[in-house]
Design a protein around this nucleic acid. Sequence first.
RNA 1: GCUCGCAUGGCGGAAUGGCAGACGCCAUGGACUUAAAAUCCAUUGUCCGAAAGGGCGUGCCGGUUCGAGUCCGGCUGCGAGCACCA
Length: 895
Amino acid sequence: MGLAGPCLPCDSGRMERYTPSLIEPKWQAYWAEHQTFKTPEDPKLPKKYVLDMFPYPSGAGLHVGHPEGYTATDIYCRYLRATGHAVLHPMGWDAFGLPAEQYAIQTGTHPAVTTQKNIATFKRQIMALGLSYDWDREVDTTDPAYVKWTQWIFLQLFKRGLAYQSEKPVNWCPALGTVLANEEVIDGKSERGSHPVVRLPLRQWMLRITAYADRLVDDLKLADWPESTKTMQEEWIGRSEGAEVKFPLVDGNGELEIFTTRPDTLFGVTFMVIAPEHPFVERLTTHAQKNAVEAYAHQAINRSDLDRKAAKEKTGVFTGGFVTNPLTGQPVPVWVADYVMMGYGTGAIMAVPGHDQRDFEFARKFGIPVLQVVSADGTVIDGEMPEAMTEEGVAVNSGPYNGLTTETFKKKVTQDLEASGQGKLRVEFRLRDWVFSRQRYWGEPIPIYFPVETDGDPRQGAAHTIRYDMPMPVDEAELPLQLPELEDFNPGEDPAGTLARAIDWRFFQRDGLWYARETNTMPQWAGSCWYYLRFMDPRNPTAAWSQEAAQRWLPVDLYVGGAEHAVLHLLYARFWHKVLLDAGHLNVPEPFGKLVHQGMILGEVEYTAFKLGDQFLNRDQITTNPEGGYQHKENGAEVLLVRVPEEDTEKKGATIILKANPKITVEARAFKMSKSRGNVVNPDEVILAHGADALRLYEMFLGPLEATKPWSTTGIQGVSRFLERTWNLGQKPVSDLAPEGDLLRLMHKTIRKVGEDIEALRLNTAISAMMIFLNELAKTEPLPRVAVETLVRLLHPFAPHLAEELWETLSHAPSIQAVPWPTYDPALCVDEAVTVVVQINGKVRGRVTLPADSSLDERRTAALACPDAQSHLAGKEILKVVVPPNGTLVSIVVK
RNA sequence: GCUCGCAUGGCGGAAUGGCAGACGCCAUGGACUUAAAAUCCAUUGUCCGAAAGGGCGUGCCGGUUCGAGUCCGGCUGCGAGCACCA
């Protein structure tokens, strides 16, 4: 690409060509030198805290998905600064994590080295986009000065009894050499890398997030979040209200407690189920059933989640034991089955096969009776129930409770059970406590140590016992507790973790006694749980943040990031926030106000067709096979889905066909960008070809911020052309004559539209409004200076480099960021004339043009009188004439 | 299976219950050029028609309304989340 293109003729002689590669670095250097985006200290300015979810700096560098959210917030921030706000807009790095460590295991490069290299790449790429971050506030979660306060927060949790150890079975991933949170396990495999995960009892640090379950649900109403995200969190927490009911063992040896949300079906209980891990298994099992129950329980407990999921059929064994139904006094058999889990409720259920799908399946399989106790309309089904009726209704076959609705029954029976001491109201949560330890190297060390009982020096291999039951917090003055240097980062097979091998770091002596440090590290979520707090006061050496900073900046006003964090990160951060609020370090209940998830940017649309050998086939000749592939319907031969170049296709009505073979239809679809697919778009290359302003503008113009949308190489040329045309306009001589008439009105309308759209993050329509304004200005001669300057000022948040350059060209001193946002006159935002649409029986039949100040009656009269209407009204009877209050149309109903 | 979201030209999309398709891409024609690229101008939902004009049209079926892409009910398809949670 040659830069010395032909000069366009113009009145002032030679015109320079729009060259982003020259002006973009120029202004980036200017902003850095003049600290244009430094967060203002002035407390009189209204504050706005605008936050992007900070990235994990991967080795692959930025992809085009990153600039989407970052550009949107950047536009918003530049607009807010121009409208007189003090804006806090920081960026940082979520830099602990597995990839750097995996790389270290393979190559021996220290993760800190890899991390710093990746951060440098990310920062260079983000800088090249011209984003207006206050780089003085940059944070890095792996920086000891940051780790110090992450550990400090852990100690606050520990001191409040919210961090504890547990020996429960956890998700151990042998391939990764670590334990994973429930949230990181998907279908029995690790979220990262899809490695198998097994259940293994290990000592773990847990965070008592369940203690905050109620508030985490209730306070969602304070957050201005997408409903879908709130729903996901609500469901993740999964609060359900029901009853705890006690079923006495028939042999008098205690009571079996169960949790149910349907105490109204107590009369329909025909069996009980307890989890294989339930402590009552032994007590309930009769001698005759002992072998069968033990075999089943042993097998079920060792079954991985993957196996449990794969099994579709219900399994279980009768214990031989019975309990008594507290309402009917009838004996009920107790079974062991793995469809009941120890981790939820009491690990035991009352089974009501008539009104629960799972119980129904179980009863069917093992020939257990099914009773009807709820009916939609009060009638009782004759004979066996054909399927479980899970809806609410009216009680039947329920003794004194017959005829009650489900809701009333629940309330009444819960009260009755409570009065007789046989049960009570109980609220259960799906949410479990958070497994907070990882057996890896590249994470924050957990600042805890334990006494060691030993006769010698444990570093020399002396026999010793670590008293894990006596955890002691590291003194706050000793923070940060830094990672030891290691040669080999391989986690190995010791579930105590990589750090267990750093003997000299692990064991230390104090006052003659030996102690051992915790060798687990924190999960990657830890750093991101509170980075928004550190940004408020990032260099504070004596506190994680100051009270004044918290008063000034919280809550985050706008938070933009991917929907993939809807549950994990956003729930964990809210939990820590509430703990810190309770500890008196914060003053607002929720960290994030408005939350927006940017949509994914897919790869370019791909055209595909089915091919067997060198023969193309149509969709209707193909079926999918169980492995997810395709095969020929008749002969079963394997068929491939192949990519077809776009130029070989042709559109024919609603379908796309092959040019060479019009009988073959082609499917068009965009796919998620991925290395393996080879459809990843690299921002560096886009900037090289079109400039950062074009990339920014294009990503915003693509569609609504929240939508998933495909990348298009030709599409970016449209916005590139717009920028060039704006540039060319800026090179033209301008007149000091004020704009007037329609141009003046369009200018005011555009100011209003762009401002309103930025505030609502409708950036695509804001750009389209500026395009319309430009198209009009390009036709205007002489060109009013005020109009060109207005366009440049409006464009500035979107294409800041171009705007700065044009602002200078228009003989102004930099920077345009210091120039207040243009204002509009509402009186000039309406047209002088209105076009009133004449509708007859719902069809548009004509238009009349009237002055903007005409009354509704005048419009009605003019519409009825217009020739187009008359020709459709001739010989018809007018039944009704409707003029809506905005007066844009007159609707006539005739017969 | 449950929960949530989405569905508009050849494509990305626009439209407080009020002119469907703004803006952009693509495509076609023209101007400029020796030529091409770039640029500029015009056309561009679809069908009938020489035109004037008219019919149809926002996934499908129905409803509310003077008026529905928009609201309500029922489907279908696609996407996301959850998934034996008692």
